[in-house]
Design a protein around this nucleic acid. Structure first.
Lengths: 343, 343
DNA sequence: TTGAAAGCGCTAACAA
DNA sequence: TTGTTAGCGCTTTCAA
C-alpha cells in the first residue's frame, strides 16, 4: 500500500540498497545518485517504515514510561521532562497509567516488553518486597523509586528526609498531635515519609501514635474524608501532614468548610510541591521534589544504559527535597503550652 | 539474543509455524502440541517480538497522541482518557508534546508516521488556515479541533458558545468593560472563544473594543502580567475573561496581591474547568469542557476508522460546554449603573 | 494437524 | 560507487 524503498529504487533506476544508503546518511553513495534518490523519495511522499527498520536494527527508539496517575500534576511534570529529554535524543515515549493497580502495572510491563521498547522508566505502584522484584524486568530500566537492588538504576527523592523535615517544621510551629494522612498503605515512598515523621517525633521526645496515622488513595476526596474523620474525633490533632499535595488540598478544603483557622488552630502540610499548591489563595506548605530533574535524570540514565555510552554502572540517585513553608503552617495557638526543645 | 519462536520450535520438536499458531490462539494445531509449546514458551520466558509481528501484520497496535502541553491538567485529563480507552482496545499510546510550537508539531507528526502508529489524535497548535492543512496527514487521524474539513473526524467543544455563555454571564453580573486575556493569537479555539465574547457584547448593545483584548501564552505568568497591565491602566476593566483556567489563576493571583476585591470590584473567569479551578479557596468561574468524554470519543472514533468496524464516516462532534459559576464572578459594585437588558 | 517457504520493509555484509 | 543477497522474527498460504 504505502511506498517503499523498492518503489523508489525502480523509479530512480538504482538498486534498493543504494536507496537505503541514500536515505540514511549518504555513506557509500555518490552525491549525484543520492540527490536523485532523495528527489524521487520526496516526490513519492515516501516515509520510511520504522517498524521494518527497528526489526533489523534490533532497537525501537522508543522508551516506555509507566506512571501511576498522570492526572496528578506531580507525575505530569515528570512525564513532560521524560518526553522532552527522550525526544532530544531521538526517542519517542509510550506512556501508560497504572491507576496504582499492581495488576495493571504487570500488564503494562509485559506489553512494553512485547512492544520492544528499548528501556522503561517505572514508578512502581508498591513496595517491591525485598527489592528484587524489579531486578529482572527483562529490559533496561530505571526506577523512580529508591531500591537497594544492585542491578537496577534509580532516581528518587529522599522521602524519609522529606518526612523528617516537614515533621520538624510542624513541631517547630508548636504542633504536638501531628496526624499523618497517608496515601496507599503499601506505597513505599509513602511509608518512607512516615518513617521520617516518626524519627522527628522521637527525636523530640514524642511517641508516634498509630491512632494518628491513616492511609488511603492519593486523592483529594481521601484527604477530605480523612481530615473530617480526624477533626471530628474527640481529641483532634493540631496538624495534618498529608501523603501528597493532592491529599492535602482535600484536607484543606474540609478545614475551610468546617471553619477551622489554618494555621492558627491547625497546620496542614503536603508533599510534592506541585504548582497548584503554591497558588496565592492556597500557599500550601509542602516538601518540594524536583520533578524536572527527576524525569531528566531518569531518562539520561536509561539512555546511557541503552546506548552503552557511559560505563554501564548502576546508579542510585537520591535527591534531597526542600521544605517549602507557606501559609498553611505557622505558630499555632495552644491553650496549654508544653515547652519543648527543637534544635 | 532474546528467545524466538525458532528456539521454542527446536525445544518442542515442532516446526516454527506451529509455534506461531499455538501462540496466537490455537487454530489448526492440536491441543496436545499447543500445550507443549506453551509450556516451553513459558519455561524459556518467551516474549513475542511485537516489532516483527507488526511488520507482517502491517499494524502496530499503537496510537499517537499529540498535545500542546501535558502539564496543563486540561490536557493531562484528556491524555488519561485516551490512554485508558486505547488500552481497553489493546492499543498503546505514544505521547508527544508540542509546547505550542508548529515546527515541533510537524516533526512529531512525521515521527508518528515513521513509527507507523495506526492512527493519531492531534490537538493542532494553531489555526490550519482553510482547514485543509490537516486533510492529508497520511494516516488515520482525529482532531481535537472542530474543522470544516470533510475528510477528517474531529471532537471539540463549542468554544464560540462557551465564550458567548461566559460573556453573557459577566454582563449579567453588571460588568461593562470586559477584558479578554487570550491565549496564543493564532490558537483557533481561543479565537472562537473571542468570537463568542464579541457576539454577546453586540447582542447587548456593546461594541467589542480591541483595546480590551490581549494575547499571550497559556500560562499563569502571562495571566498575571496581562492582569497587571490592564488593571494598572487608566480605565481598568471590570471583568477579566481569560483564555483558559491557567491564565485565569495567574490573573487571580495578581488581583489578590493588588488587594482588588473579587468579585465585588472585578470579576474573573476562566475556560476549561480543570479541577484545581474548583478548589474551595479558588472557586474560579469557568466554562467546563468534558475532557473525559473528549478523550474517549476521539479514541473511539479513531479506533473505528482504523479497524473499519463502523462505516468509515467522517464525524464532526461538537460538545456543548457548561457554565460553572463559582466565587470569582458575581454582582459587581459600580459607581454609575447603566441599565441594560440581558435576556 | 503439521511443515516448508514466501514475504512484510529494511540494513548491512559481501561482491563486483 | 553500486548491486546482490541474507536475514531481523513473525504470520500465513500452500502442500503434504
Amino acid at each position: 500500500m504505502s511506498v517503499t524503498i523498492k518503489d523508489i529504487a525502480r523509479e530512480a533506476g538504482v538498486s534498493y540498497a543504494s536507496v537505503s544508503r541514500a536515505l540514511s546518511g549518504n555513506r557509500g553513495v555518490s552525491m549525484e545518485t543520492s540527490k536523485r534518490i532523495l528527489e524521487v523519495a520526496k516526490r513519492l511522499n515516501y516515509s520510511p517504515n520504522g517498524i521494518a527498520r527497528h526489526l533489523v536494527n534490533q532497537r525501537s527508539k522508543t522508551l516506555g514510561l509507566i506512571l501511576p496517575d498522570i492526572s496528578n500534576p506531580f507525575f505530569a511534570d515528570i512525564a513532560l521532562a521524560v518526553i522532552h529529554t527522550a525526544e532530544k535524543a531521538g526517542y519517542q515515549t509510550i506512556l501508560s497509567n497504572t491507576d496504582w493497580e499492581p495488576r495493571t502495572q504487570e500488564r503494562q510491563l509485559l506489553l512494553m516488553r512485547e512492544q520492544r521498547v528499548d528501556g522503561v522508566i517505572l514508578k512502581p505502584v508498591q513496595d517491591a518486597g525485598d527489592d528484587i522484584a524489579y531486578e529482572n524486568l527483562g529490559l533496561p530500566a530505571v526506577l523512580l523509586h529508591y531500591s537497594g537492588s544492585k542491578v537496577v538504576s534509580c532516581v528518587d527523592t529522599d522521602h524519609e528526609y522529606g518526612g523528617y523535615l516537614m515533621t520538624r517544621h510542624l513541631l517547630g510551629c508548636g504542633c504536638r498531635r501531628i496526624a499523618f494522612l497517608g496515601g496507599l498503605p503499601d506505597s513505599r515512598s509513602n511509608l518512607q515519609r512516615l518513617e521520617g515523621y516518626a524519627r522527628a517525633l522521637r527525636e523530640n521526645g514524642l511517641t508516634p501514635d498509630a491512632q494518628l496515622v491513616r492511609h488511603g488513595p492519593f486523592t483529594s476526596e481521601n484527604g477530605y474524608a480523612l481530615a473530617k474523620e480526624f477533626l471530628q474525633g474527640h481529641t483532634p490533632p493540631d496538624a495534618l501532614f498529608c501523603g501528597n499535595d493532592v491529599i492535602a488540598l482535600g484536607a484543606l478544603q474540609y478545614a475551610q468548610e468546617a471553619g477551622i483557622q489554618v494555621p492558627q488552630s491547625l497546620c496542614i502540610a503536603g508533599f510534592d510541591g506541585i504548582s497548584y499548591a503554591s497558588l496565592a489563595q492556597i500557599r500550601l506548605t509542602t516538601i518540594r521534589q524536583d520533578r524536572q530533574r527527576m524525569g531528566e535524570t531518569a531518562t539520561n540514565l536509561l539512555l546511557d544504559a541503552i546506548e552503552g555510552n557511559a560505563a554501564p554502572t548502576v546508579q542510585k540517585i537520591l535527591l534531597t527535597p526542600t521544605l517549602l513553608a507557606q501559609a498553611t503552617t505557622g505558630e499555632i495557638n495552644r491553650s496549654e503550652s508544653l515547652p519543648i526543645e527543637i534544635d
